[in-house]
C-alpha cells in the first residue's frame, strides 16, 4: 500500500508538471527527427572537372554518378576548385591520372574517392567481363548512418531523460525535506526505492513506446526484428537509468550538481556505447563500454532492429541490464540507510 501510494504520488507530480512530461515525451522525438533529417540526406554527388580528357573518356565517365564538367587547362580547373564550383578535377600528368582535391571537407573527399573507386571498378568489370557483386548479411546498400546508430539513440534518449528526471526528483525529495518525512514514517527503505521504480516505470514505459513507435513508423528507422523486443530493451534500459539517477542524486547537493553528472557519466557512456567503433579504440579505454548499461542495450537494440534477432540472442544483454538495475537498487537501499538511524 505504501509502495502504491508513492507510485501514485510520482504519477500525480508528473501530471501536474507538464514541462517535465514534455521533456520526457516530446524532446526525444524532436531530437530524433532532427538527427534523421541531418543523416538521412541524399549522398553527395561529386562535381568533377576533367582537364583535357579525350571525348570517349568523358563519355565513359559520365555514365557514373557525377556532375562532370570539362576544362581546357589545369589553371582554369584549379580556379574552379578554389571557387568551389567543382569538388575535384582529374588531369593527365606524365601518363598517370592525377586527382586534385580541395581537401578541407572529409565528406567531400570521401564522396570523390568513392566515385573514383566505383568508376575504376566499372572499367575493370567491363574490361575483363567479370561482375563484382556485394552481398550483405545484414542491412543493405541503402542503409544509411542513421539506420546504424538510430537504435543506439533510441536507447540513449530513454536513458538520458529518465536519468535526469529521476535523479532531480529524488534530489528534491532530499533537499526539500520530504525524504525526512518518509524516514520518520513506517515506510521501509526498500519500499521507497520500489515505489520510485514503479511510479517512474509507468512513464518510462510510455516514453519507450512513443520513442520506438515514432522512430520506426514515422522516421522509418530500419526495423528487421520484433517491435516488442525494442520496447522491452528500452524499458529495461530505462530502469537502469532510473536507479542510477536516484543513486547518483545522493552525491549531489543541488540540481546543478546533478547536471554535472551528464559530462561525467552520460556522455562517456555514449562514446562507449557503440555509436563509434570500439575496435579502433585504444584498449586502455575501450573497457569502459563494458561497465555502462547503454553498451549492452545498444547491442540488443542493434541485434533486433538491424539484424532481426530474437529473444534467444539478446537475452544475455537484457539480463545484464536487469543485473545493473538490481545492483543500483540495492546500493540505493544502502545509501538510504544513512538517513534512517533507528
Amino acid at each position: 500500500m505504501r509502495v502504491r501510494a508513492l507510485a501514485k504520488r510520482i504519477i500525480q507530480q508528473f501530471i501536474h508538471d507538464k514541462r517535465s512530461m514534455a521533456l520526457m515525451f516530446v524532446a526525444p522525438i524532436l531530437i530524433l527527427t532532427l538527427l534523421s533529417l541531418v543523416f538521412n540526406s541524399d549522398p553527395l554527388e561529386p562535381k568533377i572537372g576533367l582537364v583535357k580528357m579525350p571525348d570517349p573518356v568523358v563519355q565513359m565517365l559520365q555514365k557514373d554518378k557525377a556532375d562532370i564538367s570539362k576544362f581546357n587547362s589545369d589553371n582554369t580547373a584549379k580556379l574552379a576548385l578554389e571557387e568551389g564550383t567543382i569538388h575535384a578535377y582529374l588531369s593527365f600528368d606524365n601518363g598517370s591520372v592525377v586527382v586534385h582535391l580541395e581537401g578541407s571537407d572529409p565528406t567531400v573527399t570521401q564522396a570523390v574517392m568513392s566515385w573514383i573507386q566505383e568508376s575504376v571498378k566499372n572499367r575493370i568489370q567491363s574490361a575483363i567481363g567479370i561482375n563484382i557483386k556485394t552481398e550483405f548479411q545484414h542491412g543493405s546498400k541503402s542503409m544509411n548512418s542513421f539506420d546504424s546508430f538510430g537504435p543506439v539513440l533510441v536507447g540513449f534518449f530513454a536513458f538520458f531523460f529518465v536519468f535526469l528526471l529521476a535523479g532531480v526528483s529524488f534530489l528534491r525529495e532530499r533537499t526539500g525535506g520530504t525524504l525526512e518525512r518518509l524516514i520518520c514514517s513506517p515506510m521501509k527503505l526498500w519500499e521507497i526505492v520500489v515505489g520510485y521504480v514503479i511510479g517512474f516505470g509507468l512513464f518510462t514505459l510510455i516514453q519507450a513506446a512513443i520513442i520506438s513507435t515514432f522512430s520506426v513508423y514515422v522516421l522509418d528507422l530500419m526495423m528487421e526484428g520484433s517491435f516488442f523486443y525494442v520496447l522491452l530493451t528500452t524499458v529495461l534500459l530505462s530502469f537502469t537509468a532510473l536507479t542510477l539517477g536516484i543513486l547518483l542524486s545522493a552525491f549531489a547537493n543541488n540540481e546543478l550538481q546533478m547536471i554535472q553528472f551528464i559530462p561525467i557519466v552520460i556522455v562517456p557512456s555514449v562514446f562507449f556505447s557503440g555509436i563509434f567503433n570500439l575496435e579502433t579504440m585504444s584498449s586502455y579505454i575501450s573497457w569502459i563500454g563494458a561497465v555502462t548499461p547503454l553498451f549492452y542495450a545498444a547491442k540488443a537494440m542493434r541485434d533486433v532492429m538491424i539484424r532481426g534477432l530474437g529473444l534467444g540472442e539478446i537475452s544475455n544483454n537484457l539480463l545484464v541490464l536487469v543485473g545493473f538495475s538490481l545492483i543500483f537498487m540495492t546500493l540505493n537501499i544502502f545509501a538510504l540507510r544513512k538517513y534512517r538511524k533507528g
Partner: peptide, 13 residues
Amino acid sequence: GYMSQSDALYQEL
C-alpha cells in the same frame, strides 16, 4: 508525529 523546520511538502501537488 514530527513537524520539521522545513515545510517538506511536494510543490507540484
